[in-house]
Every structure is written in structure tokens, then in C-alpha cells.
Design a protein around this nucleic acid. Structure first.
Lengths: 144, 144
DNA sequence: ATCGAATATGCAATATTGTTGCATTAAAAA
DNA sequence: TTTTTAATGCAACAATATTGCATATTCGAT
């Protein structure tokens, strides 16, 4: 849950119309404490009122493109989405459970990555650093 | 290219029969200096002699399961495969070009991740840490 | 407020990547 | 050599994501 965000403002701040669908998608992404897949976002939205699956994908692309949502790779087949890092929300690593697919956010300081030296000499453009731990979460460990 | 590896031995060392298909897959993975997708591995193999796409997927699963090949997530839709870290081959971060899909291996020391403190307190089981930089590679930068 | 242009959404079809079940072939063990 | 086990091939399927085009909504100008 992002207490600092007014989603309407967040959208207009990146020159996106704050349509109902966009607000709905952004609220689901933002009000969750962990990243989730497009499919889960869609299912969550459909519980309240109808929306097209393709619209969800397109809005997610749009939000990722505008930088307010972050697309995360997983150890599985689908991408997960969460609010992108910002002033109130530092970049942080994630933990992905291979068994249940749950993704958790880890403490920003729990893992440190020093990228400065590399980015000085690397010949390409670096847009993003992703640090992900894969394994089995507490709950799934219990069940086995 | 892994100069230290005899692929036949590598397979038998993990109790896998060194069948021709497995050797072929492992050679493609091992003789490449960068990780590649299952599809690319399949295409590469088919240039020489026939092999089934499903067989490639199954062999890759097997090799990943036995720990001699590593499955890497990308900023794109498909997983990439490379030789798993071992004594001659330290774990290292990767760079993924969002435009052309090329993945490069970075110097093991170019990015440091300190995971010890976290793994002491983390309630789940951590099997793997993946560090990936996403961006645009040198070549693609030139072309635009 | 109304009209026209631009943008957003919905729907159907399709693409990409990966998986499953079962038949066939090859290899290992007896 | 025969029997048993394991590997591969083939076809169908599944999950995830994307595209093209039709429809609906919103915005801006009048």
C-alpha cells in the first residue's frame, strides 16, 4: 500500500489521462504489498466490475513505459508488476517462491549492489538493475 | 566456451547418461560465451542434424535440475540458459538488451551482492540469487 | 451543449513459449 | 538375446502476451 500516492495525480503527473480503467489497475498494483502478475491483477479487477484482459495488459505496458509501475521478472513464466521505485520507495530486491509463485519485497538494505564502477565503463545503456532471490517461501516449506 | 569441461564427464558426474542429444544440447550451451534461449539452442542444433523441440526443452530441464546448467530470467518473455557456476566459473551478473535480446555475462566482481546477513534471518529457503541489468547494448545504441 | 478528432477500451484472432500424454526407439540389465 | 528401463519424437494442449480492428469514450474547438 502506498500511502504517499494519489493515483489520480500520479497518472496526470506523467501525462496520462486518469481514466477509470487506469485508476483501477493502478490501485490494485499500488494497494498490494507485493508484486503480482497481470493475470492476478485482471482477476482481482474482475471481482468488482468488468474489464478486458487486453486492456489490463495495455494499461500495464503504459504504466511501465511511463515509469510509475515496474515490471519484474520472476523465476516463473509471467512478469509481475509493482509500483516503481520513487522518493518514498527505494529500489529493493525481491524473493520469488518457485512453488507458490508468491513474490515478496525485501528490505532495500538487505542486499547491496554496487553498480557505480560498472556503469562508468559499460558500453551500453543501463536502465535498471534487478536483484531477485529464488527459493521456497516459509509457508511452502512448512507444507512439505 | 568452457575449456575446463569435458561434457561427457560432466553428464556422467551427475548420473545422467551421456546420450547424443544431451551432449549436443550441452555443447551448444557450453560452447557459447553468452546464455541463449531454448528456441535459439534448438535452432542451432537443427542446423546440424534433426532434434525435437520438446527434447531440447526436456534436456534443458534435466540439466538445470542436475545443476550443470543455469536457467536465467530475462527482461523478455523467454528464459535463457548457460553453464551453471562452478569452481572454474564464478556466479556473475548479466546484462540483457531489451532491444535485441542479447544477454552478456558481466565480470563476477563488477557487482557485489551481500546476501549473508539476509540469509541468516530470512524465513524461507534461498536457492539462488540473480542479478540482472536491463538496458540497451552498445550495438543497438549505435543503430538508433 | 454539439460536433469532430483523438484516444481508450473491447473483442476475436493470433503469436510465443513451454508442457503433457502417449507411442516409438534406443539403451541397459538380466 | 530377451526383458526392462529410459530417452526421444510427435501431436495436442496450456499459459502468457500481443495485434488488428471495431466500438465507445473523452477532449477540444466552436
Amino acid at each position: 500500500m502506498c500511502l504517499h500516492c494519489n493515483y489520480q495525480e500520479l497518472l496526470t503527473s506523467v501525462n496520462l489521462e486518469a481514466t477509470e480503467s487506469r485508476l483501477r489497475v493502478l490501485e490494485v498494483v499500488g494497494n498490494n504489498s507485493f508484486p503480482m502478475s497481470a493475470g492476478d491483477i485482471y482477476k482481482t479487477l474482475e471481482r468488482n466490475s468488468t474489464i478486458n484482459r487486453v486492456t489490463v495488459y495495455r494499461i500495464l505496458d503504459l504504466l511501465v513505459g511511463s515509469g510509475i509501475v515496474e515490471r519484474l521478472s520472476t523465476g516463473g513464466r509471467s512478469a509481475y508488476y509493482g509500483l516503481a521505485p520513487n522518493n518514498f520507495h527505494k529500489p529493493h530486491p525481491h524473493f520469488y517462491c518457485k512453488q507458490c509463485g508468491q513474490m515478496d519485497c525485501l528490505n532495500p538494505d538487505s542486499l547491496t549492489v554496487k553498480v557505480e564502477s560498472l556503469s562508468k565503463t559499460f558500453p551500453g545503456r543501463i536502465d535498471k538493475v534487478e536483484v531477485r532471490l529464488d527459493g521456497i517461501c516459509k509457508n511452502c516449506l512448512k507444507q512439505n
